[in-house]
């Protein structure tokens, strides 16, 4: 099976879907000759032309609004917000408009659009270019929030996102762009709202998203050599959230840790934990349920400070050991 990077997998999904469906078009800042700030749309202008790889002025609210308007007329726009932080400039359109149209208009229309947005820290981009705002977006019924961790998932989820009739926030992680994995050339989709057990294990359930999935799997492999078996669950879609897979897992393992890069306060870990402790899995819980989120600070510039601001493998390992060892 061919190996692609996370970035290439998303590009391949866009490319194949634009070939398959002429209603699909891209819009965003610098996505043409420049190829997008991260190079994700590189080569697409030459293949599809200016009409379908539409470069926009720096006007995020109107980029999202343009996607909304076009989707109401049957187009399938995929907008790029250069850094996830900038979606805040377009939040009225995303939240007050797109998320509510199907409902507010009594089900008589829908907004089939995708807004791509790379988030996350680790690139020294400092406080205004490094946030993980997926928890914020989860608060708005009507939106779908997708957050892939692997190239395989990224392609399959992007194809599902474009074909879905609802507004989708497709949250990428900029540090994952270069990570590689096997990605079939074929057209395949991954269902929205379905979590995946990335690694089975009997001792503890760790729920993590995007880059934290990768970090947790590394830790799990290390601990496995000592006989600690960690079950790693990647929700893949944060809204709607597949709580069933998580609850079933905790009922088996009896322990739960949730890891995310987003600031801990108000982060989605709280949502997962509340769902689990309020479920019948409560009876099987053998240890305190814990969350390991980003520190409640803006992301700093300095490399050491930046790393210390979000969970790293050592902390994930420490948390797991403490929970499994009954030390918390």
């Amino acid at each position: 099976m061919p190996e692609l990077s996370y970035l290439e997998a998303i590009r391949q999904a866009l490319w194949q879907e634009m070939k398959r469906d002429e209603r699909v078009f891209l819009l965003g800042e610098d996505i043409g000759r420049y190829g997008g700030a991260f190079g994700l749309t590189h080569g697409m202008l030459d293949e599809f032309g200016e009409e379908r790889v539409r470069e926009t002025p720096i006007s995020e609210a109107t980029i999202v609004a343009t996607a909304i308007g076009a989707s109401l007329l049957g187009m399938r726009p995929v907008a790029e917000i250069m850094f996830m932080d900038f979606i805040l400039l377009a939040l009225d359109q995303m939240v007050n408009q797109a998320a509510k149209m199907h409902f507010m208009f009594g089900g008589r229309t829908s907004v089939p659009m995708v807004v791509r947005m790379p988030g996350g820290s680790g690139s020294g981009a400092a406080s205004q270019h490094s946030q993980s705002l997926e928890s914020v977006l989860m608060h708005f019924p009507g939106l779908i929030v997708i957050n892939p961790s692997t190239p395989y998932d990224a392609k399959g989820l992007m194809l599902s996102a474009i074909r879905n009739p609802n507004p989708v926030c497709f949250v990428e992680h900029k540090i994952l762009y270069k990570t590689k994995g096997e990605v079939p050339e074929d057209d395949y989709t991954i269902p929205i709202g379905v979590a995946e057990i990335k690694r089975p294990g009997r001792d503890i359930t760790v729920v993590a998203n995007n880059i934290m999935v990768i970090k947790t799997i590394h830790v799990a492999e290390k601990l496995s050599k000592e006989g600690i078996e960690v079950e790693v669950i990647d929700p893949r879609t944060l809204l709607p959230l597949d709580t069933k897979t998580i609850i079933d897992s905790v009922a088996r393992t009896g322990r739960l840790l949730v890891v995310h890069e987003a600031c801990q306060t108000g982060g989605w870990a709280g949502e997962v934990i509340a769902s689990v402790v309020g479920s019948p899995a409560f009876d099987y819980i053998d240890a305190p349920v814990r969350r390991l989120g980003g520190k409640d600070i803006p992301i700093p510039y300095n490399r050491g400070l930046e790393m210390a601001a979000v969970p790293q493998e050592a902390e994930i390992e420490q948390e797991i050991r403490a929970l499994v060892g009954g030390k918390i």
């Binding site: 609210a61 109107t62 343009t66 996607a67 909304i68 308007g69 076009a70 989707s71 109401l72 726009p77």
Partner: peptide, 8 residues
């Protein structure tokens, strides 16, 4: 701004 999308 949605009119931009409809027009487009």
């Amino acid at each position: 701004p949605q009119a931009v999308g409809v027009g487009l």
